[in-house]
């Protein structure tokens, strides 16, 4: 079956808390928060579900502008927010359970944050290829 088209509404960071509050009051479930690079900057998308229909909210983001955490409204957001903070280096303020960069520990800091990453693999000793 053909899937339904999805609409993503872009809003300002300042409106985020109010909008998420109204989603919570209307009985929506928080499905996920994702982050993706958009040109030089980033965008963070919040998805909500009610009656099996997804609704998305999107805000622009950058590593030097903290985003207010929504974990006071939806506690579950702490996993997604910590993950984005660790992988993209985008700071969140007021996360209910803040791991401060130890949620996902990676070999290089913020692997998704910059586009200039080179991984050098050394041949292990005694292993033949």
């Amino acid at each position: 079956m053909k899937q339904p088209q999805q609409t993503i509404e872009t809003i300002a960071v300042e409106d985020l808390i109010n909008r998420v509050h109204s989603f919570h009051d209307d009985g929506y479930r928080l499905v996920q928060i994702s982050c993706a690079a958009e040109g030089e900057a980033f965008e963070v998308t919040y998805s909500f579900d009610k009656d099996l229909t997804l609704t998305h909210l999107r805000i622009p983001a950058s590593p030097d502008k903290p985003i207010p955490s929504i974990s006071r409204i939806y506690l579950a957001s702490f996993v997604y927010e910590n993950e984005i903070a660790d992988l993209f280096g985008i700071p969140f303020t007021g996360i209910a359970i803040d791991y401060k960069g130890t949620f996902i520990r990676t070999s290089i800091p913020h692997p998704f944050g910059s586009s200039q990453i080179s991984v050098v693999k050394k041949k292990p000793e005694g292993q033949h290829e």
Partner: peptide
């Protein structure tokens, strides 16, 4: 192997 977080095999850490 090309993932940033993978060391590339057990032999990189202990003898196999």
């Amino acid at each position: 192997r090309e993932c940033y977080n993978i060391s590339g095999g057990v032999a990189t850490v202990i003898p196999v």
